[in-house]
Each structure stands twice: as structure tokens, then as C-alpha cells.
Design a protein around this nucleic acid. Structure first.
Lengths: 141, 141
DNA sequence: TATAGGGCTTCCAGTCACTGGAAGCTCAAG
DNA sequence: CTTGAGCTTCCAGTGACTGGAAGCCCTATA
């Protein structure tokens, strides 16, 4: 298989596949003409990577997951640990975004959004210093 | 004020402040010795930026928000538009993460996490090709 | 056989928002 | 006069691609 077909079937763009080869995630053979020659197993690996990336795993996680996948002596605990850590990171990210969302949606609701310059969003942003460190020891206490 | 004090008071690291100057978000004056000389208004701007960044606005959004802030003839609708678009992006991101979270948490729950190699997480990942394009027109239908 | 096109190759650069580090100047204290 | 902290610039790296240029390969058609 050439890279085009693999890209088509795995859903991963050719550029990305080449990049994955660059960083050693896949090692396709080469045909006489210099083209990459992918076997079914390479395709399989790429699909694996695509799925793992879609679940938000980092490339390094993917690398580890892939090597566990190929390791017959793996322990499922190793996989679970990676997944649990990633899940935790996702939860953190969601929490952070929800906090942003919360604040921002209040501000958006409060803003009339008309032709007047008056704006609670800008007011909030410009009031940022209030919560910061004071001038030099002395503050508007 | 030197960069150190501004960093302290705005909560933005010196490196980042220099970067913001590089990309034209702040334009501190210079002292005779070549040091950046920040005025209160620069500090204020930096705090504004810090707050906007904390709400997840991109640098380009920040640039626009800042210029609206300084524009007395702005219309709050302009600000609101930026904020609403950002809010929409946050919502998309949250939805995407929650979908990941959903799938991943099911997989994690299903994985025993013991010393055996058997693992539903890897099984899911390796089954990724199933949902993809078939060989060449002909599939395991 | 010539040519046109599409697919493949490599390499370089850019994205976003910083961040680390090196080399070197300035300043205040002792 | 030295020490050390703070400041300066510049260069490079992060993560995970992505775009583009220059050029080779292969097939189909005129």
C-alpha cells in the first residue's frame, strides 16, 4: 500500500503519517522507487494511533500504549494507569473550561451588546489589578 | 517600574511581558540604562491581558479587546461578539472533552487493571479500523 | 513517444503562546 | 572592587502537526 491508500483507510492525512514515521511511531518499508510500502499491520497501527489521538492521548502516551499493545507480557494495570492519568487530565481541563465558561457567560449576559461603549466585560477585565499584588506593600486596604 | 515589579504586581512572568512587547501588546518606555520603564497604565494593560488570557481568550482576541478598551467610541456589541464567539468555542471544547471522558471512563471501568495482559482499552483502540474505510471498495460486510 | 496529471519524495518554515538558557550589561550593597 | 541580583538580547525548543516548494515516479492518452 502506498501512503495515499493508508491515509484514506486509516483516516490519518499523509502529512501526519510521514510525521509519525519521523518520530518513530511507524516504520513502513520502502519500495524500490523510494515510496513507503505499508503492510496491513502498519495500517492497523495507524488506526490505533488515530483512535488514541481522538481520545486525546498525547503522542507519548500513544507511543507507550502502542508498545504495550505489542507486548504480550504487558499487565493491563499499566494500560489502565495511563488511561486513568489521562482521564484525570481531561477532568482538570473540563473543570477549568467550565470555570471560564461560568464567568464568561455571566459577563456576556450582563453586556447589552448595543451601540453604547458601556461594557461589563471590559469592566471586568480592566478590574483585574484589584485581585493582584499591591503597589509595594501598601494597598487600597 | 522595572519589569520585575510589574511582573510581581500583574502576575505575568517577565519573559511573557517581554514577549507581549515583542508582539506589540504593550509598549513600555525605556530608561537611560536600557531597562524597560513601565507606567501604571502599562501595568494596568498587563493585568487586563492576564485576566483575558485566564478567561481563555487568544492573543488576537486580547489585542482586539484591548483596542476596544482604549477606544472611547467602541460599541459594546463589538466586545460582546468576541466574547460570545469565544464562549461558543469553549462550549465546543467542553463537549469534545466530555465525549472523550465518557468513552474513556467506560473503558477504564471495564479494565481490571491487574497483572494479566487482557485489556478492553487496548481492545477498543486496536478495533479502530472497523469504523474506517474498507480495503478497496470491498469490506467485511 | 511525448506529455500531462496526479501521487510520491524531501526539506524548510510556520502555527500558538510562551519558556529555557546563554552571554553580557547595570546597579546597589558591603 | 567584588558580589550577586536584576536587566538586556538572541536563539532554540515545546506539541502535533500543516503548508508549500522543488523535484522524482508512474500511468494514461494523443
Amino acid at each position: 500500500m502506498n501512503i495515499g491508500e493508508v491515509a484514506e483507510r486509516s483516516g490519518i492525512p499523509p502529512k501526519t503519517i510521514r510525521y509519525y514515521e519521523d518520530i518513530g511511531l511507524v516504520r513502513p518499508q520502502r519500495s524500490g522507487n523510494g515510496y513507503r510500502a505499508f503492510r496491513e499491520i502498519d495500517l492497523h497501527k495507524l488506526a490505533f494511533l488515530g483512535r488514541a489521538r481522538a481520545l486525546g492521548f498525547s503522542i507519548e502516551d500513544c507511543r507507550n500504549l502502542l508498545s504495550l499493545y505489542e507486548d504480550e507480557t504487558r499487565e493491563s494495570a499499566q494500560v489502565k494507569t495511563i488511561a486513568e492519568e489521562h482521564l484525570g487530565a481531561i477532568d482538570d481541563k473540563i473543570a477549568q473550561l467550565q470555570e471560564m465558561r461560568e464567568t464568561l457567560s455571566h459577563l456576556v449576559e450582563a453586556c447589552r451588546g448595543d451601540h453604547r461603549p458601556d461594557c461589563p466585560i471590559l469592566k471586568d477585565l480592566s478590574g483585574a489589578l484589584a485581585g493582584c499584588k499591591p503597589t509595594t506593600g501598601r494597598s487600597a486596604d
